[in-house]
Amino acid sequence: MSDWVLKAEGLSKGFTLHLQGGVRIPVLRDAGLVVAPGECVALSGPSGAGKSTLMRLLQGNYGADEGAILICRADGSVADLATASPREVNGLRRDTIGHVSQFLRVIPRVPALEVVAAPLLARGVARELALARAQALLRRLNLPDRLHALPPATFSGGEQQRVNLARGFVADFPLVLLDEPTASLDAANREVVIALIGEAKARGAALVGIFHDLDVRGRVADRVVEVLPLREAA
């Protein structure tokens, strides 16, 4: 087993806005991050410093301009997300990288239970088993049974977030990315999330998160990494 699950090095990312006369906005320069199995790293820094950009790079949602994002799969093989083909990225998202975003991208007509079970079904887990695990996790997150069969489009923010959390934790990903996982949760559900993070660490997962709730951060994070804003036109 490798001594890291995620090793990002020399990451640079900027945006060229062609519709605004080609203005160039640099966000990250030479950023790096190493996360060991069983470790939870919290990203901190002022708003706009690039925490979310870094999270999106780690998920493959943004493409890096420079640098490497090495990810160790469960079988020990290593992929570089920064240069991986779209098919490889889709494979990494299926098997290796779990992601809990702040907002649920709702698919019309798909019930909450199916949304949560989807990562298991994508891996070929038998439908009954996948749905049973999804249901158990939704119950643990106190989402009432009567909501499981409904599409989450009409759910409250907190309910949608719990669907998102269940989806991110249902499949035992080796790397879990958490973007404000407790932002709209009540105290009881916050405790459930803290427990889920603890269990993920115990099974050897690496976690990277943005936690604005400093109490939660203090209880789950083993380390805090500062993401600092680039100086203008440096």
């Binding site: 060229t16 519709l19 493959g60 943004y62 779209p86």
Partner: peptide, 30 residues
């Protein structure tokens, strides 16, 4: 899973669907 953006008979950008849509590089895709 994947997206190809065409303009004037040419492929101007292609890649992972959400990356092309959330981090578009080509002026036409933007």
């Amino acid at each position: 899973h994947r997206l190809v953006v065409m303009r004037h008979g040419r492929v101007v950008e292609e890649g992972l669907t959400d990356r092309v849509l959330d981090d578009p590089r080509h002026p036409y895709t933007q």
